[in-house]
Simulated scan of single mutants.
Amino acid sequence: MLIDLQGKTAIVTGSTRGIGYAIAAGLAGAGAAVVITGRHQADVDHALTGLRDSIPGAQVRGVAADLGNADGFAVLTRAEPLADILVNNLGIFQLQPFTEIPDEEWTRFFEVNIMSGVRASRAYLPGMRRNNWGRIVFISSESGLNIPADMIHYGFTKTGNLAISRGLAKSLAGTGVTVNAVLPGPTLSEGVRHLLAPEGDDSAAEREANAFVRQHRPTSIIQRVATPEEVANMVVYICSPQASATTGAALRVDGGVVDTIA
């Protein structure tokens, strides 16, 4: 299967590192013109350099904006008013006991993990409808189904992503615009690497992550963490013309962690 996204513009939120960066690289490698976003210009510039160095001829550009609030979206939409593909990847996570999560943290997680996708989809959907073609992807998580006891606020937002993506897909019935959610399982992103090995030992981080999967996600079939590129592969396919009959779906890249046949 040859995925050709030439002539398409893709926006990937929260894409200066980790899963978002891998998605941006995958879309650029398929020929899309990719817009990456991050809060800091230095991070955006660093990511753009990496993409251009690793993907010959990559069409990439970036916008520095804090998409955890409405003002940040005003910056993004002024710079990039149209998109054919939107990947709502921006998200935050934090281990925290339920009784120690203050109101402001619930609000922050809601604004970043849920409202960023709502605002982006609301902004770019009208152009997709006019063209009768578009792809919107929400990066949810297996934690949206298996709510983690030590990150309830995170799991809650990832369940919200599933509800929004399904409802939005239904609202676009009969159009050429699809909306799907992708649910990564434990993934060795840069954030996870830093959490497990803040001193920068990547091998140690991978060992710790794989041990975590075996101990705390025993239903995992692959018995290891996924790579950001493995998650990105699913996203690139869902954004392709070949995925035109897939919409309203919750697509798991969880290594089999969610123990269900459906």
Rank of each mutant, 00 (worst) to 15 (best):
I3E: 07
L5S: 06
T9R: 01
T13V: 04
G14A: 15
I19C: 01
I19Y: 00
A30F: 05
G31W: 00
A32L: 11
V35G: 01
I36P: 00
R39G: 08
Q41Y: 11
H46M: 09
A47V: 06
A47F: 02
A47W: 00
R52K: 14
Q59E: 15
R61D: 10
G72L: 02
V75G: 14
L82H: 00
D84Q: 09
L86K: 03
N88C: 11
F93A: 02
F98I: 05
I101S: 07
P102G: 07
D103F: 07
E105P: 05
V118Y: 06
R122Y: 13
A123L: 15
A123H: 13
A123Q: 13
Y124C: 13
R129F: 13
G134I: 06
I136C: 02
E142N: 08
L145T: 05
N146V: 14
P148S: 05
I152N: 01
K158F: 12
A163S: 09
I164L: 08
S165C: 03
G167W: 06
L172T: 09
T175S: 12
T178R: 06
T178C: 07
V179P: 01
N180E: 04
P184H: 04
P186M: 05
S189W: 01
S189Q: 07
V192I: 07
V192M: 02
L195P: 00
D201T: 15
D201S: 08
A204S: 14
A205Q: 00
E206Y: 03
A211G: 04
R214C: 08
Q215A: 14
H216D: 10
I222F: 14
R224I: 10
A226S: 11
T227N: 13
E230G: 07
V231F: 00
V235A: 10
V235H: 06
Y237F: 11
A243Y: 04
T246S: 10
T247A: 03
T247R: 03
A250T: 13
L251R: 12
R252C: 01
G256W: 06
V258L: 13
